[in-house]
Amino acid sequence: MIEMNYPVFGECQCGKIKFSLKAAPKMVIACHCKECQKLSTSAFSITAIVQQDDIDIEGELHETSRIADSGNTNIGKFCSGCGNRIYQLNPAEPTVIKFKAISSLSDTKMVVPTTHVWTSEKQSWVTIPEGVQQFEKQR
């Protein structure tokens, strides 16, 4: 377990959106699906699963929506200034926040993926550390 002092503060790239994480994430996931590769403009995206009560977000967020392969609705909240994705949620589970801006916090020691999903779509050069849980698709 990583020792952290909460809350931890952060902001989007342009500073219009500010956030504080008040407790440790329930889980940190690296997603290798093609949608997350587009979203992150990288090989994968990092998501921290947090409870709604464990995060405070200030600033005006804009919203996108799409239907995931699972059939669930995925709402994305982002900054209108810089476009940084701040979080996502499934309206059927509004208390579970998929915090995308985890790497923008002032202290990122907790940003260590414990699970990798959609490894069936990962870039061939990405090596997942031994012993880390992984799934070929979303579980």
Results as ranks from 00 to 15, higher is better:
A48Y: 07
T47R: 01
A48S: 10
A48V: 09
K18W: 09
K38H: 10
H32Q: 05
V28H: 11
E35A: 13
C31I: 02
P7G: 07
A30N: 03
I17Y: 11
T41M: 15
G10F: 07
A48G: 08
S40P: 11
Y6A: 08
V8M: 14
L39C: 05
C12F: 08
S42I: 07
K22I: 02
C31N: 01
F44R: 00
V8E: 02
V50C: 10
A23Y: 14
K34S: 15
A48K: 05
F19M: 15
G10N: 04
G15L: 12
A24P: 10
C31K: 00
E11F: 09
Q37M: 12
K16I: 06
V50H: 00
A30S: 11
I49M: 15
P25D: 09
N5F: 14
I17A: 03
I2T: 08
F44G: 00
A23M: 15
A30E: 01
F9Y: 08
T47S: 13
H32R: 05
C33L: 02
I49T: 02
C14R: 01
I29Q: 12
K18P: 15
T47V: 04
T41F: 15
K16D: 13
Q37W: 12
E3M: 09
L21C: 13
H32G: 04
S45W: 03
L21T: 01
S20V: 11
K38E: 10
A24C: 12
K18Y: 15
M4V: 06
K16P: 11
A30Q: 02
S42D: 04
S20E: 11
